[in-house]
């Protein structure tokens, strides 16, 4: 039996249709038309203790819905979830004692209290004994560099400071599992860096299992050792980050802006390079890193030509998701 197991989980929502016109509004008071939206559909995965899992996918893919079911906020329409032997949505309160949750878009702080007082409140909420509380607080204050603002009221903190305080709160009671829903959203590079290091450190020190959703590929690369990707409610990738990166590197784009005097019409004799798009003096070339390396591509497309600018576009997570999803659909059809 694995530590966290998700078996055939589906979650459906009813979406009511809004109709135009007064008569239709009156009619819809009595009988509303609705369709069923499957936020997640028949997903399965299991996670071992101490894993650092990145859970990614485009907006509306079902990431938050999954996290909410794992943390006990939402009840699945069908299927079964167990987290360390507990069913989170049935033993919600008990489960809450063993988990930490951070929603990047929301704050658990009380706007009119100093951060320190908020910590003390959460100490009582999670029945943390004083020595453990003191030890954790020192450890987190140090790691998250909270010393400067720990006595300030929450309303005066910056977004990055608030996020650090929120993460510290979620970990105050040494939860065995932490769910982080977009913990680096809207933060600057330094704050992101600080949080990433912190998560790794906590995982190393306390063997905390971390499940993290994000849109930032760097978060995943630097923190996680496993990636689960979801799109349209279904899991489309589950495996090691290194394997995923191999796939991701499949599609690179080189953008070249040629000088004006150059006769830009030429024939691509190398079939490993494809012309994706052209716009005036700019050309977009697509190639696979596994077939041809970037240096070769550059030397080929710039040979005997005047070049003003070269831009290398790494594949973005959304692009990879799209590509993978398309590939998956093809599989289903064939």
């Amino acid at each position: 039996m694995s530590y966290i197991s998700v078996e055939n989980i589906s979650k459906e929502f009813k979406i009511y249709h809004r109709e135009k016109g007064f008569a239709n509004i009156v009619k819809s008071m009595f009988a509303r038309k609705y369709s069923i939206k499957k936020a997640v559909e028949n997903i399965n995965f299991s996670i071992d203790k101490g894993e650092l899992v990145g859970y990614v996918g485009p907006n509306g893919a079902g990431k938050s819905t999954t996290i909410k079911m794992l943390s006990g906020i939402l009840i699945p329409t069908s299927g079964k979830i167990t987290v360390d032997g507990r069913i989170p949505y049935e033993n919600r309160q008990e489960n809450a004692m063993h988990i930490g949750v951070v929603f990047g878009q929301r704050s658990q702080l009380f706007w009119d209290l100093p951060v320190e007082d908020t910590f003390d409140l959460y100490r009582k909420m999670y029945l943390v004994d004083k020595t453990k509380f003191k030890r954790n607080l020192e450890f987190y204050t140090d790691l998250l560099e909270m010393k400067d603002f720990i006595k300030m009221p929450v309303r005066q903190l910056s977004l990055g400071q608030k996020m650090r305080a929120n993460i510290a709160i979620a970990l105050l009671h040494d939860p065995e599992i932490v769910y982080l829903d977009e913990p680096t959203i809207g933060l600057d590079v330094l704050a992101k860096e600080n949080i990433r290091k912190f998560i790794q450190e906590v995982n190393k020190e306390k063997k905390t299992t971390v499940i993290l959703t994000t849109h930032d590929m760097d978060d995943i690369e630097q923190i996680c050792n496993r990636l689960i990707m979801i799109d349209k409610g279904q899991i489309i990738y589950d495996g090691k980050i290194s394997d995923f990166k191999k796939r991701a590197e499949g599609e690179n784009v080189l953008i070249v802006e040629y000088g004006d005097t150059d006769p830009v019409d030429f024939i691509l004799t190398d079939t490993r390079i494809k012309l994706l798009q052209e716009e005036g003096k700019r050309k977009w070339f697509k190639y696979c890193k596994t077939e041809i390396n970037t240096a070769e591509v550059i030397s080929f497309v710039t040979k005997d030509r005047q070049v003003q600018d070269i831009l290398l576009k790494e594949p973005e997570i959304e692009d990879i998701v799209k590509k993978m999803y398309r590939a998956q659909q093809v599989e289903v059809v064939s």
Binding site: S71, I73, Q93, E94, A96, I99, V101, F103, Q105, R106
Partner: peptide, 13 residues
């Protein structure tokens, strides 16, 4: 606005 989510992640009634 989803603030209620936070209420449900607490080990409290």
């Amino acid at each position: 606005d989803g603030t209620f989510d936070e209420v449900l992640t607490k080990p409290l009634n």
